[in-house]
Nucleic acid binder design. Structure first.
Length: 237
DNA sequence: AATCTCCCCAACCGCGATCTC
DNA sequence: GGAGATCGCGGTTGGGGAGAT
């Protein structure tokens, strides 16, 4: 009702910046009225989080940032906010736009140019995610993809399709409490050596918080996500 | 120079999740 | 525990710039 839509003017930006700097944003819905803006709270929040926030990084994404997006998108799908949390100064909206306008096309082109090496092999093309180089005993490798992951702990772009490879992610992954009981990791890492299992289970990020997972798939994803973040040297969430 | 087409990205929309009373 | 308010996420849109015709 009488609220303005469309692009923000520099004057509106300045009003919003000044207000948030002085009072914090508090209740977004009440903010525009208090600040004297003819915008809805939602529009103010979006403008602030995606553009005006002082820690928003401007300019093109670096190659490393793009690679990080590709890797996490491979693991997480369109969970833009989660991916953004791994890229300081980048917003979910920006990452979503970059993905839809550049990276998706680039990957599509790349995949059409790089044919799968062996259509009979369970190992097919996909992005490169190196989880660990500490391979140990591979003698127990079987045809199951899970075993292949854990015995080698290396997933290579040219060698596999990780969407077939990983257990299906459960929505509860993002909200459930977890346990320190690592026994169910055994089912995900059959035939693994105790040494390798302990490497994964006792990663630094995993020891800082007590979690309880209801099933092994969720715990698998938790550990994988954290381990990948460590190896990519990304900041903690 | 005018018009058209394509592309990018800021902003909007709808909806589920969470919070507050 | 329920209802309304608010927040935050992901999908989509459309204005405007750049290049092509």
């Amino acid at each position: 009702m009488g609220l303005k839509k469309g692009p923000w003017t520099p004057e509106e930006d300045q009003i919003l910046i000044s207000y948030v700097q002085q009072h914090g944003h508090g209740n977004w819905r009440a903010l525009p009225k208090k600040a004297g803006l003819l915008r809805c709270g939602k529009s103010c929040r979006l403008r602030w989080t995606n553009y005006l926030r002082p820690d928003v990084k401007r300019g093109n994404l670096s190659k490393e940032e793009e690679e990080t997006i590709i890797k996490f998108h491979e693991m997480l799908g369109n969970r833009w906010s989660v991916i953004a949390s791994r890229l300081p100064g980048r917003t979910d909206n920006e990452i979503k736009n970059v993905w839809n306008t550049h990276l998706k096309k680039r990957l599509k082109n790349h995949q059409t140019k790089v044919p799968k090496s062996d259509s009979n092999s369970p190992i097919q093309s996909g992005p490169c995610i190196e989880l660990s180089s500490s391979a140990t005993d591979t003698s127990t490798t079987t045809t199951t993809t899970t075993t292949t992951i854990t015995n080698n702990m290396v997933i290579k772009h040219e060698e596999m399709d990780s969407l077939e490879y990983f257990p299906e992610i459960d929505n509860r992954f993002w909200s459930e409490e977890l346990s320190t009981d690592n026994s169910n990791m055994e089912s995900k890492f059959p035939g693994d050596t105790d040494e390798l299992q302990s490497q994964i289970i006792s990663s630094p990020a995993n020891t800082s918080t007590d979690y309880i997972y209801e099933d092994s798939d969720m715990e698998f994803w938790h550990n994988l996500f954290i381990r990948a973040g460590e190896l990519l040297q990304l900041p903690e969430i």
